[in-house]
Design a protein around this nucleic acid. Structure first.
Lengths: 349, 349
DNA sequence: AACGTCTATTGTAACGTTGCAAACCGTGGT
DNA sequence: ACCACGGTTTGCAACGTTACAATAGACGTT
């Protein structure tokens, strides 16, 4: 219950008066403000002895730099915005991804700031807001589309960003992507091993770039293994249960229905399972469902389903690396990373 | 593909040179900087005619106030931080909640900023960081505990905050809570209607305050309806599938096992269903599971389960109201809202 | 002893905003 | 014609920081 338990010692000092500034520290140390600023920024022009003395005094006084002043002066925020659509995203998804980014950014002074897009009417509002009010130095987003308006906007304004997934734009930009072609090949292989002959992909909306990769990879895999492949019209990713239901009923109306399904998300897998169940088809018997797993939730589906993991922590780490590279002006070719189910490798190399 | 499609007209003007400031606008309008500042802040001291003229010029030039400068000058951020634990929270949960807060804050100039706690080693780090760096004017968090360290810290430092859920502290603080006693009474009633005689609550961890409310409400309801009640040792909310499994196996070892379960979250419901299934018990036959529903995900559980909704959008709206009240210094008694399954009413009234 | 050279530190000026005290100006009362 | 008085507007200063140019001092060279 005592204050002590919740406070660091620097904080308790800070409590007494108004917050110490560079001026306070400078006065205490008997040096100029500039010197303190430099000393705390580890500027090599400051002698090691004074640097140490000053940083001790700063600690003792509980000095914390004023972010607003730093931002005003430098124009930089030291913040990275992660855009999410709270209607779509599982936080369990975001958790690993965030953790990875956090790891990758630790020690750099950058903070991660989650921003909800899609609260206003226009999805770009959130991004415009960030840019116009300088709320972040860079932006990250997922569910990248072939002709993504967010990416386009940011490219046009030369605002640093990294996407999870690729676009079809001619102008190259930094990205980190999961190799969905490899994923779907692996998935088909697994289903074939279980004796399945006719695979169907529960496709995400066509607008998502990775849908194209899935389609392509699945064609390849189906050829290789000599199995039938059905790629029905797109269903909105992680949503639209009615559409999935309609699609499945359509497929199972005739004589040549799929005997296995590949889902790209856990929610769509859950919906698929429910629909199949409603049609009297049991997972593991008449059909098999395989899902990309990004959270532990699919462990609790019954009957159990097949899963293939996407390492989102590694994705987050890669994201951080690319982000820092982008902000320090590295060439874009070095900032495009494709993560294989097996491990990472750079597209350029 | 053209720029026009993605830009507002104010933005394109802004593009040409460096960003316009108050000085720019003042020069253009032939008035003092202060006048522009006041005009744009709708200060009554500025004549309506000049106010209008200035704001037109500001629009034309694409003037956007510099947030960093405002923050430095005023010490206020106009930001509210929503703390979330990405390991626990569904974003589908957060979506409605966020939307409600957004509605409640629209027009006030406040922005919502989602911050992940629990990325560092100490949960309080995130909050300390916000306070020390003045990253927000107020903090909101969920999953409030009886002796919540976050609430304690913020109370000690007199930092504005609102909790989702109550604490057991003597010092009153603003909160918005769902009436879980009412919820559990309703839940028991529903299960009794289905002919169930022995209800079990899959309890959240004891540290959460709402666990106490559940326990109390369930006792009342069980008495009223004359059914058996089992309240086993706590299980961590939305997690620890092994613990749930062990608990259920324990309960179903003897002759007097529950025939129905109340779950406070959808993930715990899913886990419970999986465990029951693994024991050969089918939902809707040997047992019934009822869950509090905060997202559409439970619609896809098969067999279907009973649900009772918590209106998270209304919760978010209430949150915003309380938040604004807290920041404008309203008395704390007016800032404690308990939302019934039926509708809202203030604790104080 | 004067000179240049290097290192460590200093002082000044901004970044863009808002609060405060002062000034302006047309109006109306005396 | 003077003064007081609203309603408007202005100028100055400051928030806390960092960039830049300038300075002070130490040291080796000529």
């Amino acid at each position: 219950m005592s204050r002590k338990t919740l406070e660091t010692k620097a904080e308790s000092a800070e409590e007494t008066a108004s917050r110490p500034t560079l001026r306070t520290v400078a006065a205490e140390a008997g040096v100029a403000v500039t010197t303190v600023s430099r000393a705390l920024a580890d500027d090599p022009r400051i002698a090691e002895s004074t640097r140490k003395r000053i940083s001790e005094i700063a600690d003792r006084l509980g000095y914390v730099p004023n972010r607003a002043a730093q931002r005003l002066r430098t124009g930089r925020t030291k913040v990275i915005s992660l855009l999410i659509n709270p209607r779509h995203e599982f936080l369990s998804f975001t958790s690993e991804f965030l953790g990875g980014m956090y790891e990758g950014l630790s020690g750099t002074g950058y903070a991660i700031n989650i921003t909800a897009d899609s609260l206003g009417e226009d999805r770009l509002d959130a991004i415009r807001n960030i840019r116009r009010h300088s709320l972040a130095d860079a932006i990250v987003f997922t569910r990248t589309e072939c002709f993504d308006d967010r990416a386009r906007y940011l490219l046009e304004h030369d605002f640093p960003f990294v996407t999870h997934g690729r676009t079809d734009f001619m102008t190259p930009h930094p990205f980190v992507d999961f190799d969905n072609e490899a994923f779907v090949r692996l998935a088909v292989e697994r289903l074939v091993e279980k004796g399945r002959q006719h695979v169907c992909i529960v496709m995400p909306n066509e607008k998502y770039t990775f849908g194209q990769h899935l389609r392509f990879g699945a064609r390849q895999a189906a050829m290789t293994h000599g199995v039938r492949l059905t790629v029905p019209g797109a269903v909105d990713l992680d949503s639209e249960p009615d559409e999935i239901a309609a699609m499945l009923r359509g497929l199972h109306g005739g004589p040549d229905a799929p005997d296995s399904y590949i889902c790209v998300g856990e929610v769509s897998a859950l919906i698929t399972l429910a629909c199949l169940n409603d049609m009297g088809l049991t997972q593991g018997q008449e059909v098999d469902v395989l899902a990309k797993r990004a959270s532990p939730i699919s462990n609790h589906f019954r009957p159990r389903i097949e899963t293939i993991d996407e390492d989102l922590r590694a994705t987050g780490r890669a994201m951080a690396k690319v982000l820092l590279g982008r902000m320090s002006g590295e060439p874009v070719e070095d900032l495009q990373i494709l993560l294989k189910p097996e491990g990472p490798f750079s597209v350029s190399s």
